[in-house]
Computed example of a mutant assay.
Amino acid sequence: MKNALVSIVIPCYNQGSYLDETVQSVLASTYRPIEVVIVNDGSKDDSLKIAQQLQEKHPEITVLDQPNSGVAKARNAGVDAATGTYILPLDGDDLISPDYLEKGVEVLAQQPKVKVVYCQAVKFNSSIQKPWKLKPFSRNKLARDNMIFVAALFRKSDFIEIGGFSEDMTMGREDWEFWIKMLKDGGEVVQLPFIGFYYRLTQQSKRKKTGTNQKKRERIAYLNAHHLPFFERELNGPLRFQRTWSKPYNTLLKWLGKL
């Protein structure tokens, strides 16, 4: 049976110094066929030039160029242009192992109930490499925090069904909200038992910019506004600022008749 096409979608904003290494990690994959869709999101460095040079060398690569619009819109544009059955989003400075795609597609192809496949991961930079300790998946845990990084495999059909990444979620952790949309009403999740993803730590890492209390409040308000029935089912009420205490606090308020 012929392998299904996998589309690796790489949004890139000022990540020119890492982009070639990221793409090479994809091209080293043991799985074929693949296509690589690089979306230059209005970079001010040489990202577009490097992407176009890579496109000239490798027929699997397509380059899109758009004004700076944010990572959610860049990912959506890349997936919309992608023609693969399966999608892997990959940021322009991160890496994957050669066997990640092959092992991930094997699960999706053989297990229709599985919606998302990811793997173990490490965080790294030029001086350190450390395990990324991810909690086991459950919908209840997902209601309080995200344990699936964005570079996970899923079907394009599921992406279309949920409307892709929410482009108006500009306060960070849009991948968390994406997985809530994908998984809140069912679907199994598989974590592969090996390190297949390498998350690069940089001074420009988005998680640092969106880690303020104000951004957290905005994020929680957005999630409650869009997914309140999910939180009510899993947490007995809305997601709270102290996320771990959401369920006991909501339960107490209901017992006191205040929720």
Rank of each mutant, 00 (worst) to 15 (best):
S166A: 14
D45W: 06
K258W: 14
Y13E: 11
L48G: 09
E218K: 14
A121K: 02
E35T: 08
R243G: 03
H227V: 01
R173S: 02
D93G: 07
V107R: 04
F241W: 10
I8W: 06
F137E: 11
K206S: 05
N76A: 03
T251K: 10
D158R: 10
R243H: 11
M147W: 02
V105C: 08
I34R: 04
E102S: 11
A143H: 08
E56S: 12
Y31N: 03
R200T: 02
L259V: 01
L48N: 09
Y222F: 14
T83N: 13
I8H: 03
L19S: 07
Q55E: 11
F149P: 02
R219N: 03
Q55M: 10
Q66W: 15
V117M: 07
I50C: 09
K103C: 09
A82P: 15
A4E: 11
E60Y: 08
A82S: 15
K2I: 02
K2P: 13
G163D: 06
P131R: 14
P98W: 04
G70Y: 11
G104N: 04
V122G: 00
R217L: 03
F194A: 03
D175H: 01
T202K: 12
E106K: 14
V37Q: 11
E106C: 07
G104A: 03
S126L: 09
L108R: 02
G84T: 04
L252T: 06
A143I: 00
D185Q: 05
Y86H: 08
K156D: 15
K184Q: 08
H227I: 00
R243S: 13
Y18K: 04
A28G: 07
L108P: 04
M147D: 05
K2V: 01
S157M: 10
I87A: 09
A143T: 01
E106D: 12
F149D: 12
